[in-house]
Write a protein that binds this DNA or RNA. Structure first.
Lengths: 161, 161
DNA sequence: GATTAAATACTCGGATATCACATGTCCGAGTCTCCCTGG
DNA sequence: CCAGGGAGACTCGGACATGTGATATCCGAGTATTTAATC
């Protein structure tokens, strides 16, 4: 079980976007140069965030991506779901339905106890992610490293490409 | 992010094994026939459980797999870890180290706040899984379907191959 | 100088390759069982 | 009848294919800007 590395890219990108002036946008190419990532692939991840309503994208010159809403209204779960999709990690194949007993019209994805236990665990995971917003993360970073927002801004200014 | 379907196979197999007489073993082929699964591949999963110390395996005629210890001493987390491995789903690639600021000798897998948040969520997930033993699951099944142990035994008896 | 319209450069967006890992299969090493032979 | 030995069959265990999804790339549609020509 492995989470896409795009999740890490997306979270860091969103935090960086939250340090921009309102209305300011950053292209996928510049964000990729910031972290030395493959530009086209990062672009794909940012597109996923845009489809999920976390970012807004504008084409053409002076275009790029920006946050679609306040960082306090974006949870980590939102970002993870945007990249990884809505499906759960554990997917009940209902193999128990091929065992003994009566199985008429039973949905084991809901009723199987194994499935339920796994779902409980994933719920705990989701709850933990939903309880943290990008604003929380951002303020934690700023408390530890107050120069971070300025550092990011100057780095964007000095990037070539 | 997708969990191996082998996890579902492993948990159901272990519960079935817990219904056997002490000292009784079941071969991978019979367990596969029980659930109509590919025998060689199920064998591979059961091997992983054996390596993890959850099952013991004996070769030769009358051989097979059996539980290595009491179902009350086997948590769901044990089984999941045996199949999926020890690594976490989120793996920090430390892309933040390629951003601005000083990074000498910093291990961002530990100190990056994104990494910490993701780890917290996975801890919650693990805690939930560690809190449930195979004995818990088994008793829940038996309470809902008291004939389950007997059904499983007779099915093993009537399996061909 | 202002207006308009075309050319241009730039951006996202999705279609297209490439690669790693999960899934699935096969055969050999080891072991227990059973039978056969000899006493 | 009993003991011993060997052949045989059965099981796990790991090495070997295959398929699917993540990773990475490329090019086209659309838009804001710039430029140039015209009034």
């Amino acid at each position: 079980m492995r989470m896409s590395e795009g999740v890490e890219w997306a979270i860091h990108s969103c935090i960086n976007l939250s340090w921009l002036e309102p209305g300011e946008a950053v292209t996928a190419a510049r964000m990729a140069a910031f972290y030395e990532l493959p530009p086209a692939y990062l672009n794909k991840q940012l597109q996923a965030l845009a489809r999920a309503g976390i970012l807004t994208s504008t084409p053409g010159p002076r275009g790029g991506f920006r946050l679609a809403r306040s960082p306090g209204d974006i949870s980590l779960l939102d970002v993870v779901t945007a990249i990884e999709g809505r499906e759960e990690a554990f997917r009940c194949e209902e193999i128990v339905a091929r065992g003994p007993g009566e199985h008429e019209g039973i949905d084991y994805r809901r009723s199987c106890f194994v499935s339920q236990a796994m779902r409980r665990a994933e719920m705990a995971w989701r709850r933990e992610l939903a309880g943290q917003t990008l604003a929380d993360l951002r303020s934690t970073v700023e408390r530890r490293l107050p120069s971070a927002p300025g550092d990011a801004r100057t780095r964007f200014a000095n990037l070539r490409t």
